[in-house]
Write a protein that binds this DNA or RNA. Structure first.
Lengths: 206, 206, 206, 206
DNA sequence: ACGTAACCGAGACGGTACGTCGGGTCTTGAC
DNA sequence: GTCAAGACCCGACGTACCGTCTCGGTTACGT
């Protein structure tokens, strides 16, 4: 349930209220003061908690942020996530990507997500936890949607689903994280179309 | 030539030797101690320079790193970069991406590039400078290679080149920055193939 | 026991070892490098203490110096000081003043005492603490010696003891602090004689 | 005319206007911001002068302050100072001391004089210059007044004039610099009386 | 039911780095 | 060659946090 890596004290005696207060405080501060000014000291103060309680249970600031996201994502739903499946893959992908960029353009989520993304970029162990617990389930849902499309002949049979997923979401993630271009619905639609069709000329129509 | 943003002192009186020493020290330290332990104090000490000289000319640690990259990229060549063009687009892309992941797997470049990438992620103004001065020329070279392929009928005539470029390099960049998967030649080859062909089934053989 | 003036943290949690190390380091450095080169940073380093520990408990460099003197003066004796009383006031005063100028001519004490004196000169609050805790007891001892002489008829009955004390020690202190003349035993003897006799001609002998 | 100690550039080419501007700025700043916040940089800025111009002609901040005083004292009068001589020594001393404490209680003079006094306390060379050029003439005037009183039998014939002067002004100076007591006219009157009469009982009436 | 051992809040501590101020030196261009 | 201007190297300032370390107090087991 957490990102802890090494030996920690008896989890049975852990105070759940403090844990939640810390994660909530961390996420809230991330929104309010931004990543650069986020400090353990600040989190402890906001959570009404001693600093040691944070150091006792988390090895780094990044893991606290990670767990904060974990708490949120699991609080939202106990079940694994799924992508909409109306039978029309292109339409479904367009809808999902549009929703994604709306979130990315919302400063309420933008700041914390950037914080998590850059912590991951600098911490391999955290990245592993991210891949397993946060990104993994979501990516599986994406693959599953593509698999479903494969079954009805909308995607090539021999398609590499991992690469396919990265080809759809990668450009969007990159634009967001590196700010290399505007994130609009028009843009994500183009990404979907181009990914589905490929770069090469198509022999027949469509 | 630099990432400065607001009013700065008279650049005519600036000492060029100090500027170069600072940027070199910054890049070297980035490789040696890593981003997390990179400090203005450390850069100044290594460069044999007063801290004030750094604060006088750069508004943030990120802009120093950025300028360090700028100095390197401009020191390497005065002309804009170009991608190889053998006439075989797929082969050329495979070669370029393979070279890219080799660099990404080299800790000598990995650390500093991550530092730049995450600084950009947190600083919109720096991102704008990055897009204009570092990423821009490179991206133009990529577009140009695709344009060349378009001319010889290897790519669709109505292809959106920006999206196309992002679809090829985006997945690789993401895997690298977020560590969501291994960066191998085999992987980049698959990316090239999948991007060129698209996700949908192709009517006839390839 | 200290020169603190405004609200400070819980003194119960204060580490006595650090307090002593700081005051000792301050006094030692005062002797070694002199007042002009005395820095909080230097004191902290010498004491093996974080700077914040000094800033936490003392509002200024002057109060640190003051407390260093306080520690020394209280370490020397728990009881209030007394002046020698052989029954011969003139002789006693001569002896005391001679001892005083010996100390003033000893660089071991000269430097730190000058530091304290000039800090006091620029800081009224510190001066008040000085008057109450360091100078006060000593001055009372001086007054007491004069009172004793008064009782045996060696001093005028209506003598203003405060002024009398200042008239004996003031000239010496001034010569020392302002370096307006040499500090010799011969000089202090003259001061004692002149003060006792006054400036006016004496009607009868002596 | 100045407190310079070591070799300096050709004084013939010196710009008098800058010299005066610096000394005036120094004195004014001393009054306005106080000794602790007085900086060479501040003086240069206020005087509209380059820092180098100060460093070229004065070896230390103290000597600047000293010269500022020198300029003022010589601007006031070209002739050596004299003390009033009405024939009544006690009355004259009372008047002079009263005027002195009025000045000492005036913050307009208090701050700069403290600055000078403490600079002198820490700089023997400066002290020598002070004794020779500022304190010397004044002390001679004081001695002269006492000599005059001696001539008319108001003071002992064998009186040590140096000690006598210090016994009258020393207590006042000390009270001022160390803030060991209030500086009132009543106090200075007592000092005069006690100094003239001495501490010992007088055989007959006064 | 009652120690006693752990967690907990609080926060002092030794440190590192921050961003700023000013010291004293050096360079530039105007006079 | 002096001067105004100001960049430069350097050292110290006072502050913010780091991660570690006590210090009571309050749980919550294990006997």
């Amino acid at each position: 349930m957490t990102a802890q890596r090494s030996a920690t004290p008896d989890p049975a005696r852990r105070r759940e209220a403090s844990r939640r207060a810390i994660l909530t405080a961390a996420f809230d501060l991330l929104q309010e003061v931004g990543y650069a000014k986020l400090s353990i000291e600040g989190i402890a103060a906001r959570a009404g908690v001693g600093k040691q309680t944070i150091y006792r249970w988390w090895p780094s600031k990044g893991t606290v942020i990670f767990d904060a996201f974990l708490m949120l994502s699991e609080g939202a739903a106990g079940e694994p996530p799924t992508l909409p499946d109306t039978g029309d893959l292109a339409a479904d992908l367009r809808a999902v990507l549009r929703a994604t960029v709306v979130e990315m353009n919302d400063p309420r989520y933008d700041q914390p997500m950037r914080a998590l993304a850059t912590e991951i970029a600098h911490d391999p162990e955290l990245a592993a936890a991210y891949v397993e617990r946060l990104d993994g389930p979501l990516k599986e849902a994406k693959r599953e949607r593509l698999r479903s499309a494969q079954r009805v002949g909308q995607l090539a049979e021999d398609l590499d689903l991992d690469v396919a997923v990265e080809m759809i979401w990668g450009p969007v993630l990159n634009r967001w994280l590196q700010r290399t271009g505007p994130l609009t619905a028009e843009y994500t639609d183009r990404v979907v179309t181009t990914a589905l069709d490929g770069l090469r000329p198509r022999p027949s129509g469509r």
